[in-house]
C-alpha cells in the first residue's frame, strides 16, 4: 500500500510541476539578465583556496597594493577623460 501511495504522490507532484512549468513558459515573457559579463570583466588579482583556516597564507600585500593602485588609476583615468 505504501508503494502505491508514494507513487501516486510522486505522480501528482510531477503533474503539478509540469503544468506550472508549461504555464510559465506559455504565458510569461521576458527574463532578467543580471550577469557581470554583460557589463564588464572580472579581474582576479589574487586567490588562495584551501581547506581549514587561512593561517600561513602567502603575503598578500602585493595584491592589496595592486587593488589600491588599480582603483586610483581607473578613477584618475575617468576624471581626466571627463575633465
Amino acid at each position: 500500500m505504501i508503494g502505491l501511495i508514494i507513487g501516486i504522490i510522486a505522480g501528482f507532484n510531477l503533474a503539478l510541476f509540469i503544468t506550472l512549468a508549461c504555464i510559465k513558459y506559455s504565458v510569461d515573457a521576458g527574463s532578467t539578465t543580471n550577469e557581470l559579463q554583460d557589463y564588464g570583466t572580472l579581474n582576479i588579482l589574487y586567490t588562495s583556496k584551501g581547506m581549514g583556516t587561512t593561517e600561513g597564507e602567502p603575503d598578500t600585500s602585493k595584491a592589496l597594493g595592486m587593488l589600491e593602485s588599480r582603483c586610483l588609476e581607473i578613477n584618475e583615468a575617468y576624471k581626466k577623460h571627463q575633465g
Binding site: L36, Y39, G40, T41, L42, N43, I44, L45, Y46, T47, S48, K49, G50, M51, G52, T53, T54, E57, T60, A63, L64, M66, L67, R70, C71, I74
Partner: peptide, 17 residues
C-alpha cells in the same frame, strides 16, 4: 562535504549599467 576557505582579491569596471 569539506568546508573550504578562500581569500579573493579582485575588481571590475561595469560600463553602461
Amino acid at each position: 562535504q569539506v568546508v573550504n576557505n578562500a581569500r579573493v582579491l579582485a575588481d571590475c569596471v561595469c560600463r553602461w549599467m
